[in-house]
Design a protein around this nucleic acid. Structure first.
Lengths: 336, 336
DNA sequence: CTGAAAGCGCTTACAG
DNA sequence: CTGAAAGCGCTTACAG
């Protein structure tokens, strides 16, 4: 809140605090010779007026903006490929990309802002109202990639057409002649997972295929979850002949679980993944999967972040890019 | 070259150029009203004296250093896992990590320096003498991770004990009873590949096992290379019963090539990878491989980069971390 | 096109 | 512990 568009100066603070510029300067530079209560009052005012020391000013002026990309957990294929899209798009725009794991120290957003970041892109991370407030206070725009929550008009986000993807995957299996198709999904409360599952349900219902409760299993987006989930499915009275999974990692677990039981993929069990990360192409057999345009999604997120950093509005607070079924070698008619 | 430790100021340049400070200021700020030849002379001097505008000075002063990590090609598992090590270590040290793809515009090194980078970490990238000179001129230290060239005392690098890894992998196969073991490697001129291959050769020779030329194939570090190489190996008069590969991606290609021919892994063909990326754990069957401590290597590179950025010396210009054989399900005695 | 001069934001040695 | 004053590096309106 500098008076009229001007930067806040030490003189502004000095006047507001009723002390000399020299004293304010000492506080800013952490010199010792200031009375504690004077120091406290001045610090409070510096904070309120959003004072930025000259050394940090480049932050706002410089032409090449820096975007912070945060993610949780490991740098998995999904994140890596999204990141590539972000990087390519940033290189084109002359922007820099800083990566970090989500870690919320007391003033994380303010710290990012004063380190020169102009916007934050969060990859599949949970953001609460508190985080949003921190970010807003620091003046940092946020773009969420593959949001875990429902699109919220206060947050800008980029996703993919998950429902359509679930529908396409399931229809593909149905068209091959499968009827007993299971869904081995991700966390139950993640919207992307819910949409994929409902796409699956919609396709099954349209075909009049039964969906027993035991055939729809939420879980984690991991290989281990695929391994365990498949074991449970294959122990069923009437095991499925095909499994549609929440992502490629789960699908790889399914393939391995089948192998361990002496089942061949796709002859004895068909498997469809989701994402089309490199994992899908390098699986044995190569995985039929629903492609998410991860690079394009990353690129879109970066462009939106840059626009917001520039004070412009995003065209829409949420955009979704199209998914697409990619048929490879892990699906075949049942009873090979 | 500021006189005596002091920063170069506009006054220094003005004096050297025999013009007023005002004129130099105009040149720095790109204002129009300066004669072309005056502008040229001043610009030359600014460059020579390494003048840095106040807005950019934070670059050198600030406590939280920024490290640029560059890599070539895609953000593959190998790079992603190394990057995780770099990030964790950076978070601990309060440093920031900027990622970018190698792309060498005219003044790339100088541009990085003036954008505030304090060091560069190159992941498996080729650096020529010219690049090194650019970097040196910009005052930017370099650490190469998994160098493609032989350790050079002018470059700081971090690697792994590749020869020992090749030896361990091959011994493992020999101890299972294999004699016809092939090596499907990476690029012939990459030192890491050479070391792995010589480890393989050393183990074979020690055992008196023959190494026919057709059984040692250099190639790319890719799935496709694994696919193609295996096809060639299996077409041999006496095909190998086991394949040791230059990295995990190649190994996944081998597994798929075997499957396509109706061969089971490990019953009909044993496969050993290299790296122990996530790919290895998620393969079907899970891959026996030589673990490179990628996170630790990344962490070591970051620490070295920070030390160099600080003007300290690295303890050694090249360090190697230990590799370790990880036995999973892709290896078994021959003729299962 | 150039530079003397006024001025700005900041720091610091020093008097109180 | 505080602030008046000198000074530094830079910018800019203006006279030449």
């Amino acid at each position: 809140m500098p008076p009229n568009g001007r930067r806040t100066t030490l003189a502004d603070i000095a006047q507001a605090a009723g002390v000399s510029v020299a004293t304010v300067s000492k506080v800013v530079n952490g010199r010792g010779e200031v009375a504690p209560h004077t120091r406290a009052r001045v610090q409070e005012l510096l904070h309120q007026h959003d004072y930025l020391a000259p050394v940090f000013r480049h932050t706002e002026a410089v032409g090449s903006p820096t975007i912070e990309v945060q993610f949780q957990g490991g740098l998995k294929s999904y994140v890596a490929e999204t990141l590539e899209g972000i990087m390519d798009s940033a290189a084109e725009a002359g922007a820099s990309v800083v990566i970090s794991k989500v870690c919320r120290a007391p003033h994380w957003a303010r710290d990012l802002a004063s380190a020169g970041r102009r916007a934050v892109i969060a990859v599949t991370s949970v953001y609460t109202a508190t985080h949003l407030r921190e970010l807003a206070r620091a003046g940092l725009p946020l773009v969420v990639l593959d949001p875990l929550h429902l699109p919220d008009s206060r947050v800008n986000s980029v996703g993919a057409t998950n429902f359509a993807g679930g529908l396409a995957a399931t229809r593909h299996l149905l068209s091959l002649g499968h009827r007993r198709i299971a869904y081995l999904g991700g966390p139950g409360m993640a919207v992307c997972n819910q949409a994929r599952m409902h796409g699956y349900r919609a396709a099954m219902e349209a075909e009049g295929a039964p969906v027993p409760d035991a055939c729809v299993r939420p879980g984690e987006f991991t290989y281990e979850a695929g391994l365990l989930g498949t074991a449970a499915l294959l122990d069923l009275e009437e095991p499925p002949t095909a499994v549609f999974t929440g992502n490629d990692e789960i699908a790889l677990g399914v393939i391995e679980a089948a192998r361990v039981r002496g089942l061949r993929v796709p002859e004895d069990l068909s498997v469809v993944g989701f994402d089309d990360t490199h994992l899908a192409q390098m699986a044995s057999p190569p995985l039929t999967t629903v492609r998410q345009p991860l690079r394009e999604m990353g690129a879109a997120a970066l462009r939106t972040a840059l626009r917001l950093a520039n004070g412009e509005k995003a065209e829409s607070h949420h955009i979704e890019l199209a998914t697409e079924l990619v048929v490879r070698a892990s699906t075949a008619p049942p009873g090979g």
